[in-house]
Design a protein around this nucleic acid. Structure first.
Lengths: 380, 380
DNA sequence: CGACCCTCTGAATCACGTT
DNA sequence: CAACGTGATTCAGAGGGTC
């Protein structure tokens, strides 16, 4: 069972749960989503169909059928049909998404501009557009355009100014040689043994995405135990990677052929060892330690002298946990800002104290307190 | 005299012409375009306001202020207002464009989806979307998103199935080591001496584009002697590059300050004797390979054990590309430094992994990825 | 003159919990 | 719900000064 390190499991224990952790529902995605509870999904990944043939299976806003894409008029008619289709499934997605959930949509220039504009109009808030750079794109045979070597993903929160969405910044950065991950990602196409084949030995699905792409999506914007939904399940890449990474999954798929292939695929997936995906404590999430508690624990004495690392500024520690420079009294942050003439300052990293081992930042002393606290908690 | 490559001069001989080859018209771009003859322009490059929306100011971690775009021209009341503005200038552009002319529009995720959808609705036909990958983007200071490291350009013809638009495929390919030019281009920001400065020594314009970007746009989709138009002239980068490459130019600019600076700039430009493409097709950078990509490519598994060459230290590989020793999680470099009690460590040479061929440094695995990438690129 | 260090800056939708 | 206080957070490159 996947458990967050700091508290309750994010789902019911397996024995009590009536629904499996990974399931594919066969049917129209809008219809299937209508049966799911609102605000229940942590992360959505959607790879909607975007060729005009598929759009032609859809209906115009006036409910008439679009039956051909042969002439220009119908090309524009199918834009309208495509927009209506897009609004419909995005509306259903927005309903099932948790307030702090986020959604990824992938597309090419044929559809991504329409999708992006509609998402903005619906109230989604774009966090990033991310480019998948293909290392091995299909060349442009006729030499009339640039090689179409990328696809675009939109990553958005449900609402403007959504608070608390998941972005595993520190882990991503650590996996990227300590440099923050950019909005352009480079991956090869899904080929070789990863590509699902039909009975005829041909590729089963025309747009199967590489697992590496999904892995970065899921690792960046969800936590173990989270519920991931893919309204256009296809070969189940999202589900396979979600399971591998310890996330729960619901895939929606209209065609039984794909649904059953995906089910087999997901069933065969083994979950990676849990330590390799366990959440870890980031600086942001670390428990608060007041400066006063350093004094209470005897790590800093009232009356001690604080300086910055270059000893340009001095402050005196008060018994109450405030510090003073001349007549000025305030928190480590406020006084640190004041002496530097800045609006803000992180007092923990700015101020240092002389110790037998040399000058030490009070942040290092705080780390001592935190590790003591962790030991105490473990002993409980 | 500048002539079209394939025959007749594309304009009147200089002695008879009343209009200069390179000019800037001061005024609202829609109004100014209404005075130009229909179907007279070969290529449009447009860098419209992006409609950036956050008013609150952003600071770097060192508390310095980020000089963002806060100009009035980038303020719109709503998406609807921005859409109306976009439709207006695009309509004017479409009128002045020749039937075989093409248009480029650059933007970011704030506006490009709206612009693209409107272009499609108006009947423009998208030929490519092209990504400008910035080598040196501004980082994400708060660590809440991916580094916004690219902008998107839409390249479109006036009509669906437009015949005879200019695309200098062979020349581009020849200038790119005989490989088709892809839809993702890598260039640095416009900085240093190329960046126009005001009297105060600060940047004159907040959004000046690099000349290398415009050079590739103009070289790819226009011919010498062609008329290039930029409805949002700004500092005149489009005009300067157009002149350098032997194209004619009309720039439209509302603010006199920018118009006069651009006029001086363009006047100083010398036309290159025979436009050669090679200098603009910058070499591809050596690919940077992150530790996470070894996992993504299956060379290292999540949960695998890393050791140093003498097997004194052990670490576990996480799915996200970080590694862990006990409760400690971090990059290969940071954790390598920690276990050795050092300030720094090159994780690539320090950590090894057990393979069928014996203990192998992860640096050797990285070399494998690099050679695979080189092979794939060469095979394009 | 090079090596090294410090400073500055670039189209950016860049917290969050408590009171 | 607004105001407030704490405190977490950056990459590449240009340019200038010093040793």
């Amino acid at each position: 069972m996947v458990v967050s390190r700091r508290g309750a499991p994010s789902r019911a224990p397996r024995g009590l749960s009536k629904t499996p952790d990974h399931r594919i529902l066969v049917g129209d995605c809008v219809n299937e989503m209508s049966k799911l509870p609102a605000g229940s999904v942590d992360l959505i990944f959607a790879d909607p169909p975007y060729n005009l043939q598929l759009a032609s299976d859809l209906k115009r806003p006036d409910d008439s059928h679009v039956d051909a894409v042969t002439d220009d008029w119908d090309k524009f008619a199918s834009f309208a049909a495509y927009d209506a289709f897009t609004k419909e499934w995005l509306t259903a997605c927005r309903r099932v998404l948790k307030p702090a959930g986020t959604i990824w949509v992938i597309g090419s220039y044929h559809n991504i501009f329409r999708v992006g504009a509609i998402m903005q109009d619906m109230g989604f808030w774009i966090l990033n557009d991310v480019i998948w750079r293909k290392t091995n794109p299909m060349p442009n045979f006729r030499g009339r355009r640039f090689t179409n070597a990328h696809e675009t993903m939109i990553w958005a929160s449900r609402d403007p100014n959504a608070k608390g969405y998941t972005f595993n910044y520190e882990a991503l950065k650590a996996g990227n040689d300590d440099i923050q991950v950019r909005s352009d990602w480079t991956f090869p196409l899904c080929t070789g043994s990863e590509r699902l084949k039909g009975a005829d030995g041909k590729k089963l699905h025309p747009t199967q995405k590489p697992e590496a792409l999904l892995a970065r999506v899921i690792l960046s914007s969800s936590k173990p135990g989270d519920l991931v939904l893919d309204p256009f399940n296809g070969t189940g890449t999202t589900g396979a990677v979600a399971k591998k990474l310890g996330r729960r999954y619901i895939g929606l798929e209209r065609e039984k052929k794909y649904a059953s292939a995906a089910e087999k695929r997901i069933a065969d997936v083994e979950v990676v060892p849990s330590p390799s995906i366990a959440p870890f404590m980031t600086a942001r999430e670390a428990p608060r330690v007041a400066f006063a508690s350093l004094i209470e624990r005897g790590l800093v004495s009232p009356g001690a002298k604080l300086t910055d690392s270059k000893k340009r500024h001095k402050a005196i520690v008060r018994a109450d946990g405030a510090i003073s420079v001349g007549e000025t009294v305030g928190s480590i942050h406020r006084v640190g800002a004041l002496v530097q003439g800045l609006d803000a300052c992180n007092g923990w990293s700015f101020w240092h104290v002389e110790t037998p081992k040399g000058l030490m930042s009070i942040d290092d002393l705080r780390a001592q307190v935190r590790s003591e606290m962790a030991l105490l908690e473990a002993a409980e």
